[in-house]
Design a protein around this nucleic acid. Structure first.
Length: 618
RNA sequence: CGGGGCGUAGCGCAGCCCGGUAGCGCACUUGAAUGGGGUUCAAGUGGUCGGCGGUUCAAAUCCGCCCGCCCCGACCA
C-alpha cells in the first residue's frame, strides 16, 4: 500500500469531500467551494461521490504481471488494475475503482427504473426454504440453491432471485384492482451455487442484481408494464454506452409467454445468438428458429438395406453410402423424466435440447446411456426408427422435408436407404427441435442468419400467474371477483454488465471505459513529481478540476513516466492529462482521449473547458 | 458431476524425478542517480512450501487421504 499521511482524528464534519478532508486533498489546502449545483447538473451520477482522489492514497494497486489464473480479458484487466479481489470461487470483493463504476451503473439503473414508474425497495436475501417449496422452485433450482440451517435447525436459503418473497409481500399488501398496476425493484445480492464459476465477474456465485417485478390486473396490463421495462432497459444500456441487443429468449420452465434477453455481443460470451442482418430478427440460439437448407425433391424409392461396416457416425455413413449428410437421419436418445425418447433429426442438423425439453414438457432431460439404449432393444450407431416398439419417437420437422433418407437398420453394420415418412415409420410427435445455425434461413424473411457470441446482461420475462396462483396473491376486480395478479420480472446483472463492458471495450494496453461508467473521467498524471513547479501545477489543476465537478484520479505517485502512462492506459478513463516539466514550461497541459493516438497541448487556463468538452457527452 | 491442469513471499515462476541451509524476477523498504512509455545501481524486509497423516536420522521433494483454485464439458430464470 502506498505510504500516506495518517489521517488522524478529524472531526466528522471535516471529512465531507466538499470540505476537502485529508483524503481528498492535502490537509489545510481545502477545496474551492465549487459549484455544487453545476456539478450535479452535469449528471446526477456524481451525487455522493467524491470527485477527486490521489492515486498515492487509493486502496488497490496495479500489477506488473497478470495473475495466471485469469484468461478472459475483463477478468485479467480488472485483476491487473486492482479493481477486484477474489475471495473464493465466484466470490469477489470490489475495490474502490470497481465500486465506483458499479455505483454509476446502479445509479443509471435507478434513475431509469424510477422514471418508468417503479419503486425501489429491498427484500431479504435470507429466506425460509419453505417458501421455495411452496412454488416448487426449491426442486427446480436444485443444487444451485444455497441452503443453510439456523441454530434452531430451520432450513433457510440464500435467495438466487426474489419472486417468492415479492409475491408473498404483495399478497399481504395488494387487495384491490385500485392497487394495480405496480412495479417494484431492488438492487440486491443474489446467491447461486453455480456448477462452475468462471471468467471473473461474468459468472459468479454471489452477485448484485437489479430485479424488478410488475403486478397487473390482466395480460393487457402486463403487456404495458413489460413494454415500459423494455424501453427502460434500452435507455439504461444506451446510457451505459453499451450496444445491448434485445433478443428473443427461451421462456424456461415457468412457461411464460414472452421473454427477451439483452445481449452484449462479444467473443467471451456464454450464449450464442442468431440474428438476421436483413430484417433484424434476433434470438438466443436456444430459442431461435432457423429454416434449414432445403433439399431438392425426388421420387420415393423402395426401402433397401445396405451394409455399412464400421459406420457409426453420420459423417461416416454419409461418406460410405455416398449421400450428403442432409440425406441421412440422425438418431439421438434422451431420457425425459425417466422415459426413453428416440429423437430423430436430419443428419446435417443438431438437436436443440432446450426446445426438446419444452416439447416433451420434461422437468429433467439428459442423454441416455448406452445401457439404456440397448435395454430398449436398440443398437447404438445403427439405431432405427423403423420397426421400433415401446419407445416414444420424436421427429424434427426436417424429417418431413426430405426424402429417401439413410437410417439405421437396427442391426450392427447395416443401414437402410430410401426411408420416408410417414411411409416407413410414424413418429409419435413431430416438432421443431433443431438448433438454428449460421447460414440457415431467417424465419421472418428467409435471408441467411448469422451467429455470434454474447453475454446476457439483462432478461425480461412475462411470468403470468405462476407465482400469484401458487402463493395466493389475488386482488378483487371492479365486480368483486377475486383474481390472481399477473406478473412480470426484469433483471440486470450489475457486475456482469461492468465485466461485459470491459470485455467489449479494451485493447492490448488495457480497458477503455465507456465514459458514463468509468470510475473517474480523468486520469491526471504528473511526470517528475520531484520538480516543484510540476507538483504545484498538477496540484492546482487537480483542485480546479474538482472545483468544476470533474471526477479525477490524480496520479501523484513518485513513479516513472512509463509506469504512470501505462497505468493510465490500463485503467482506461476517458481523458488523460499529463503535466510535466515540458508542459509546465509552456504553461500548458497535454490532453489525450483514451482512444486517441496522440494527445494535444492545451493552455492551462483552457484545460477545464477542454475536459468538459470531452466528457459532457452524457 | 466427468476430463485436464495447478497450489512454494502480494504477483509471475524455479527447486520436486534423484530427500540434506527455500531460491529468482517483479512489487515493497532505505539511499543514490535518472526523469515522456513498466529507468539504473547498492543495501534490505517478507515464506505454516495448501492441510493432515505416514515413511525416514532428515520431507517443499517419497507415499496416502483431504482441501482449494483454474480451464474444457455437463449444468445455467
Amino acid at each position: 500500500m502506498a505510504r500516506r499521511k495518517h489521517p488522524g482524528l478529524v472531526p466528522a464534519a471535516l471529512l465531507s469531500y466538499r470540505q476537502g478532508g485529508p483524503w481528498g486533498a492535502p490537509a489545510g489546502l481545502g477545496l474551492p467551494a465549487g459549484d455544487r449545483a453545476g456539478e450535479l447538473a452535469r449528471g446526477v451520477l456524481k451525487e455522493g461521490m467524491r470527485p477527486g482522489m490521489r492515486f498515492s492514497q487509493l486502496f488497490g494497486r496495479t500489477l506488473r504481471q497478470e495473475p495466471a489464473e485469469a484468461e478472459t480479458a475483463s477478468h485479467r484487466l480488472m485483476l491487473k488494475a486492482g479493481m477486484i479481489h477474489q475471495v473464493a470461487a465466484g466470490s469477489y470483493a470490489y475495490l474502490p475503482l470497481a465500486h465506483r463504476s458499479l455505483r454509476k451503473v446502479e445509479q443509471i439503473i435507478r434513475e431509469e427504473m424510477d422514471a418508468a414508474g417503479s419503486q425501489e425497495l429491498k427484500m431479504p436475501a435470507l429466506q425460509p426454504l419453505e417458501l421455495w417449496q411452496e412454488t416448487g422452485r426449491a426442486a427446480a433450482f436444485g443444487q444451485n440453491l444455497f441452503q443453510l440451517r439456523d441454530r434452531r435447525d430451520r432450513p433457510l436459503v440464500l435467495a438466487p432471485t426474489h419472486e417468492e418473497v415479492v409475491t408473498q409481500m404483495v399478497r399481504a399488501h395488494v387487495k384491490s384492482y385500485r392497487d394495480l398496476p405496480l412495479i417494484l425493484y431492488q438492487i440486491q445480492t443474489k446467491f447461486r451455487d453455480e456448477p462452475r464459476a468462471r471468467a471473473g465477474l461474468i459468472r459468479v456465485r454471489e452477485f448484485d442484481m437489479k430485479d424488478a417485478y410488475s403486478f397487473d390486473a390482466d395480460e393487457e396490463g402486463l403487456g404495458l408494464s413489460y413494454g415500459r421495462m423494455v424501453e427502460a432497459y434500452k435507455t439504461i444500456f444506451r446510457r451505459c454506452g453499451l450496444p445491448a441487443l434485445a433478443v428473443e429468449a427461451d421462456p424456461g420452465a415457468i412457461g411464460g409467454k414472452d421473454s427477451q434477453e439483452f445481449m452484449l455481443p462479444t467473443e467471451a460470451g456464454e450464449d450464442t445468438i442468431v440474428l438476421c442482418p436483413a430484417c433484424g430478427y434476433a434470438a438466443n440460439a436456444e430459442r431461435a428458429t432457423g429454416v434449414p437448407p432445403p433439399v431438392s425433391p425426388e421420387d420415393r424409392l423402395p426401402l433397401e438395406e445396405v451394409a455399412t461396416p464400421g459406420c457409426t457416425t453420420i459423417a461416416q455413413v454419409a461418406a460410405y453410402v455416398g449421400v450428403p449428410e442432409s440425406k441421412t437421419l440422425k438418431a439421438v436418445f434422451y431420457v425425459a423424466d425417466g422415459r426413453l425418447v428416440f429423437v430423430t433429426i436430419r443428419g446435417d442438423l443438431e438437436v436443440n435440447e432446450v426446445k426438446l425439453g419444452r416439447v416433451l414438457r420434461a422437468r429433467e432431460l439428459r442423454m441416455a446411456s448406452d445401457a439404456e439404449v440397448s435395454e430398449a432393444g436398440l443398437v447404438a450407431g445403427y439405431a432405427s426408427p423403423i420397426g421400433v416398439k415401446g419407445v416414444t419417437i420424436l421427429a424434427d420437422a426436417s424429417v418431413g422435408q426430405g426424402a429417401n433418407f439413410v437410417v439405421g437398420a437396427n442391426r450392427p453394420g447395416y443401414h437402410l436407404r430410401n426411408a420416408n415418412v410417414p411411409r416407413d415409420f410414424q413418429p409419435d410427435l413431430v416438432a421443431d427441435i433443431a438448433l438454428a445455425q449460421e447460414g440457415h434461413g431467417c424465419p421472418k424473411c428467409g435471408s441467411p442468419l448469422r451467429a455470434s457470441r454474447g453475454i446476457e446482461v439483462g432478461h425480461v420475462f412475462k411470468l403470468g400467474t405462476f407465482f400469484s396462483e401458487r402463493l395466493g396473491a389475488t386482488y378483487l376486480d371492479p365486480r368483486g371477483q377475486q383474481r390472481p395478479v399477473v406478473m412480470g420480472c426484469y433483471g440486470i446483472g450489475v457486475g456482469r454488465l461492468l465485466a461485459a463492458a470491459i470485455e467489449q471495450n479494451h485493447d492490448e494496453k488495457g480497458m477503455i471505459f465507456p465514459p458514463p461508467i468509468a470510475p473517474y473521467e480523468v486520469y491526471l498524471a504528473s511526470l517528475n513529481v520531484e520538480n516543484e513547479a510540476v507538483r504545484q501545477a498538477a496540484d492546482d489543476l487537480f483542485q480546479q478540476l474538482q472545483g468544476a465537478g470533474i471526477e479525477v484520479l490524480y496520479d501523484d505517485r513518485a513513479e516513472s513516466a512509463g509506469v504512470k502512462l501505462n497505468d493510465a492506459d490500463l485503467l482506461g478513463f476517458p481523458v488523460r492529462l499529463v503535466v510535466s516539466p515540458r508542459t509546465v514550461k509552456q504553461g500548458s497541459v497535454e490532453v489525450k482521449g483514451r482512444r486517441e493516438e496522440k494527445g494535444r497541448v492545451v493552455g492551462m487556463p483552457q484545460v477545464v473547458e477542454a475536459v468538459q468538452g470531452m466528457t459532457m457527452t452524457r
